[in-house]
């Protein structure tokens, strides 16, 4: 009797997860706040949720939007919680920030961005970084397209005002 050794290949789910990992990690990181250890934890949590949810994905073509939706949900949840804790004085996020070497104007823009409400951050990341359409972004956030437009408009306005205020000082 001849035995045959089958090659071990990653299954489709693992391969898809590997492909989606950068998108999920970076989306969560940007929404929660790049440079914070909490964002890295949230990214791990999002990957775990994606791994569990992938079997329910019916249309492989919609995988990016599917992953972005899960990443956004985890990120907004985490960011909202952290914002609440910060308001209660239960967090010292500044101590957890990792040092980054970036041009001052980008650092200033990032700090202004991190001060936006979590859903505005998520809208901006999904639209401008992930590249989802307005409809896909609305689906990911569970809101109307009009809300996406308004959130993005408000985010731009708030950032502009924040930066203008900083320059006036």
């Amino acid at each position: 009797m001849q035995s045959e050794r089958l090659p071990v290949e990653p299954n489709d789910g693992e391969q898809l997860l590997a492909e989606l990992r950068p998108l999920v990690v970076r989306t969560v990181r940007l929404v929660v706040g790049a440079g914070s250890a909490i964002a890295e934890d949230a990214a791990q949590d999002a990957l775990v949720e994606l791994d569990r949810a992938l079997p329910s994905l019916r249309n492989p073509a919609a995988a990016r939007a599917f992953a972005a939706r899960i990443a956004t949900r985890v990120a907004v949840r985490t960011a909202t919680r952290e914002r609440r804790f910060a308001l209660l004085g239960l967090r010292a996020n500044a101590a957890e920030r990792l040092t980054t070497v970036q041009p001052p104007d980008l650092v200033e823009l990032k700090e202004a961005f991190d001060a936006l409400p979590p859903r505005q951050r998520a809208t901006a990341v999904l639209r401008l970084y992930v590249g989802l359409s307005e409809q896909e972004t609305a689906d990911a956030l569970g809101c109307a397209v009009g809300t996406v437009k308004r959130q993005l408009h408000d985010a731009r306005a708030a950032l502009a005002a924040h930066l203008q205020e900083g320059h006036d000082d």
Binding site: R26, L30, R156
Partner: peptide, 23 residues
Amino acid sequence: MTDSQLRTMFEAFAGAPTPGLRP
């Protein structure tokens, strides 16, 4: 404030494709 400025910032801070490990 332009979308291109935001995209540049996102690219600068998006970081590694895998989550960072910490204790």
